[in-house]
Design a protein around this nucleic acid. Sequence first.
DNA 1: CTGTTAGCGCTTTCAG
DNA 2: CTGAAAGCGCTAACAG
Lengths: 355, 355
Amino acid sequence: MTVTLSDVAARAQVSPATVSRVLNGNYPVAAATRERVLRAVDDLDYVLNGPASSLAAATSDLVGILVNDIADPFFGIMAGAVQSEIGGPGGRAGGERMAVVCNTGGSPERELTYLTLLQRQRAAAVVLTGGALEDPAHAAAVSAKLARLADAGTRIVLCGRPPLEDSDAATATLTFDNRSGGRRLTEHLLTLGHRRIGYVAGPMERTTTRHRLEGHRDALAASGTGSAGNGDQEELTVHGPYTRQSGYEATLELLRRAPDLTAIVAANDTVALGASAALRERGLRIPDDISVAGFDDLPFSVDAVPALTTVRLPLHEAGARAGRLATGAEAPPPGGVATIGAELMVRGSTAPPCR
Amino acid sequence: MTVTLSDVAARAQVSPATVSRVLNGNYPVAAATRERVLRAVDDLDYVLNGPASSLAAATSDLVGILVNDIADPFFGIMAGAVQSEIGGPGGRAGGERMAVVCNTGGSPERELTYLTLLQRQRAAAVVLTGGALEDPAHAAAVSAKLARLADAGTRIVLCGRPPLEDSDAATATLTFDNRSGGRRLTEHLLTLGHRRIGYVAGPMERTTTRHRLEGHRDALAASGTGSAGNGDQEELTVHGPYTRQSGYEATLELLRRAPDLTAIVAANDTVALGASAALRERGLRIPDDISVAGFDDLPFSVDAVPALTTVRLPLHEAGARAGRLATGAEAPPPGGVATIGAELMVRGSTAPPCR
DNA sequence: CTGTTAGCGCTTTCAG
DNA sequence: CTGAAAGCGCTAACAG
């Protein structure tokens, strides 16, 4: 029924071993023989059996990409970039790597489950993108799983995620400098003259959330603004998921708590969009009455009205590099960790406070 | 080195077959035995070898999802929804399906390559999302590949894509009603009084592009607006990719060709965003000087300023249903094809023309 | 309910 | 450069 490698061998009048060799192209085969085999493959419309070859070779050509939310362009852009670097040269049958993106939805269980599934498939590499959960138990579980995967020969790459505590060396990490990005953004606001700044943070217990918030508070502290009343800082911070709705609701809450706010910093651009919507609904003009800033510089941010001041993360470049790291096309950075800089993008949504 | 099923069997003092049975849970096993096996699995930290079991069982638990652009939320939302419906109940080891999203980047070659890769992996199902390329040769190649996959037992689901010409029956199709969505949108503009309407279309040769454009022209024709000079219609249409930049550039071009335009319809929301940016740069106010409309109703559209009039496609619902179809959890629609309705969302970006 | 027995289709030494 | 043979780790009849 289904055509196998031996069928091809028979038709090409060679042994199965030879067919395997031309297909994998990693062994010398006479040009004439190769031609004959290739023709047989075409004639028979043969497709290699992936599971069988993975079993025999004890490796697969799957590369797993774990993302928190596939519907969020933040992850989509990285995943796309990883994928674009992963595709092999397109050699006949072998060599083709397949990137599989797995959507954890931010759930720790699913993250672990996918890791197990990838382990089960004997994945060639696994790329973990975006912020990690800070729960120690979960972090330990992930580390353990990753160590196991690495033992089995799977390459591990972290992209946009802080390095593992217990770094097993086999892991390459590309981490975003969320902290100084956050700091620079708030410094910008401070320089403009803002003193009452609300912060719509991401979900608790996420490294991304914490680092960005820390950067914000670092800037405040350095300027002496936050130091007076620190409970004040808590008051001006609201946590929520990385969604526009969260930005919307949190902003309303912030306005309730502190009607004298002159600026709002959002955990990311999507949240900033929701925040802006809430402000407009309250009749506040941006940036005349209140400034707004985001983080990430997703494609739509430049088209917001007014264009959003934000912190640009080179998502595409980082993803591409992660892809190369995953395939071994690029050497890991010294020490296994590279920090990717964040760039402040000042646009129309921030201005000096009016009062 | 690596622990196998027989190791587990030995430790649990049962035969490998029994271990396999408890792991797959699809065969009666005494409760006591099962416990013993499960404990052995835990003790040994055993992970099933996916390739081996796929080989032996001649099926895999992989579900492929093909998307044109993973960085575009249009696809991200559908892919996420498919995935959310696919995950198994999370039984111990077996039963877990793994959704893999494959980014074709709109390239026909990559689409075919991924299909081959999925075939090689003996995927349980393949979901193709979004508009298809209209090139007959490519369409035939895809159909052929799909037929082959179906023969091998892979379920095929089309989501947001028109049914296959040569429908092999084994395929379930969820198609968006792009045509009447486009028609209704333009009717809305016509009703407002617009007569000179520019159209920023998607890339040529895509079903989505064509259907939306046809809907637009249908509306025009029905109202008698387009019938006078049909070359005129061509004049007022510019094609380009589904990107904001395309929307930006095409709009500038449209304005050059016809400065008297009172409305611009974009192929999708992303394009509409770019169009809006171009209009604003030209000093035109939306909707006072010119109306703008999009398509898809992506999450950011409601936050545009003014909020974007568009056509809502139930992306999440469609994806979820596609996921259920892919796992066989839902019966295919009668005739194998279901048409998903599109809903007009009238918002602030459209208004009667001022002149 | 459980063990035995054959492979699934491919890769890979090891000889020629 | 090519062939023969021995599995990779698991599942699936088939008996008990």
